[in-house]
Simulated scan of single mutants.
Amino acid sequence: MAIAPSSNLNSADTLCLRLLISGRVQGVGYRYSTREQASALGLVGWVRNLPDGRVEAMVEGDRPQVEEMVQWFHSGPPMAQVEAVKSEDLPLQKFRTFEIRR
Score class of each variant (00 low, 15 high):
residue 44 V to N: 05
residue 80 A to C: 08
residue 46 W to L: 10
residue 89 D to R: 04
residue 57 A to C: 09
residue 101 R to V: 12
residue 82 V to H: 03
residue 101 R to M: 14
residue 50 L to G: 08
residue 89 D to N: 10
residue 101 R to T: 10
residue 47 V to T: 07
residue 101 R to C: 12
residue 51 P to G: 10
residue 33 S to Y: 10
residue 11 S to E: 15
residue 70 V to Q: 03
residue 81 Q to K: 13
residue 5 P to C: 07
residue 83 E to M: 11
residue 83 E to K: 10
residue 73 F to G: 01
residue 97 T to K: 11
residue 18 R to P: 02
residue 67 E to S: 11
residue 84 A to S: 14
residue 23 G to Q: 03
residue 63 R to E: 04
residue 87 S to P: 00
residue 71 Q to E: 14
residue 75 S to V: 15
residue 13 D to V: 13
residue 7 S to R: 13
residue 66 V to G: 02
residue 72 W to H: 02
residue 39 S to T: 15
residue 60 E to I: 06
residue 73 F to K: 00
residue 69 M to P: 02
residue 35 R to M: 14
residue 74 H to F: 06
residue 37 Q to A: 12
residue 51 P to Y: 08
residue 5 P to W: 04
residue 69 M to H: 06
residue 85 V to P: 00
residue 21 I to L: 07
residue 63 R to M: 07
residue 80 A to Q: 02
residue 98 F to C: 06
residue 56 E to D: 04
residue 12 A to C: 14
residue 34 T to F: 04
residue 20 L to K: 10
residue 42 G to H: 07
residue 50 L to S: 12
residue 56 E to A: 11
residue 37 Q to E: 13
residue 71 Q to I: 11
residue 71 Q to Y: 07
residue 20 L to P: 00
residue 49 N to S: 11
residue 72 W to G: 01
residue 3 I to C: 07
residue 35 R to L: 14
residue 57 A to S: 10
residue 54 R to E: 09
residue 80 A to K: 00
